[in-house]
Design a protein around this nucleic acid. Sequence first.
DNA 1: ATTATTTAGCTAAAGTACTTAGCTAAATCC
DNA 2: GGATTTAGCTAAGTACTTTAGCTAAATAAT
Lengths: 151, 151
Amino acid sequence: MSVQDDLGRQMGGRFSTAIVQFHAAVAERVGLNVSDYKCAEIIRRLGPINPARLAAATGMSTAATAQVVNRLEKAGLAERRPDPGDGRRTLVHPVEQGTAQEELGRIFAGFGARMAAVMEAYDEEQMRTLLDFVSRTTEVLEAEAVTLRRR
Amino acid sequence: MSVQDDLGRQMGGRFSTAIVQFHAAVAERVGLNVSDYKCAEIIRRLGPINPARLAAATGMSTAATAQVVNRLEKAGLAERRPDPGDGRRTLVHPVEQGTAQEELGRIFAGFGARMAAVMEAYDEEQMRTLLDFVSRTTEVLEAEAVTLRRR
DNA sequence: ATTATTTAGCTAAAGTACTTAGCTAAATCC
DNA sequence: GGATTTAGCTAAGTACTTTAGCTAAATAAT
């Protein structure tokens, strides 16, 4: 039972479950379902984005994405605007102010503080190792997901 | 823009999305929805388990869990048996053989091989750091999820 | 230039999954 | 021995996702 095995087990089971549960709890707290919350995050992260790309990023159909955007507009978290360069296209813009955004800010401030406390245990060198590991693992996960879907 | 910020950003965004997407892809590949797949994993990991605990572990209602177990039984991934000690209780047992399990084995063998390649870059000391980080982060995530739901 | 095709996004209807409510049976309590 | 609690299930209602089909704008073809 090596350290590597421990790590693999932890990553595959409790850790990934914890991530999913945490995001589900955040979404619930803000009054969104998990899909809507995930889309809101992507919109905020990738700036103005068109529905097709949003659909591709989440793996959902474009129809489902349109309905997600409908709900996010109602919730005041996103806004549809016509693409000035192409009349067919729509750009979904993030809306930065509003109660939902403020609540999200508070939640992630609390989470950030706790993670900062965890981080204090590591020096610069170790943090570089952690970042490297997270980056590489992300790439493997993304690549595997694509491979699995492609077949 | 410190290494710590980079890590926080990566963890909050791309990494957690990648985990979710990967598990969704695996589930789809095996012909299950994400909830059913997650339950199957928990059943396999925690051995014979009763529906109430399974519901608590996933955050779903016991009613939804009963329906999940119905589908898993049909899929040949789990089996209900009466608890010998308490006639009210049911124990959900994992079923180890079958095509779905074999497919899962193949998928995780491939994933494991790629992660092993990532791991080669680290020595024992670094892997201990990684395991420590993952464990602590898991605890923070679980605690935060509970706190968010409690209020 | 006008028509045909492709592209982007949307709505509507159908299917699937989760929740709330209510039921049955076994164990425990008095 | 009857009342209450506990565990699990089914059924009906709600919500989200998909498939199918539509409209409008851009591009291609004749």
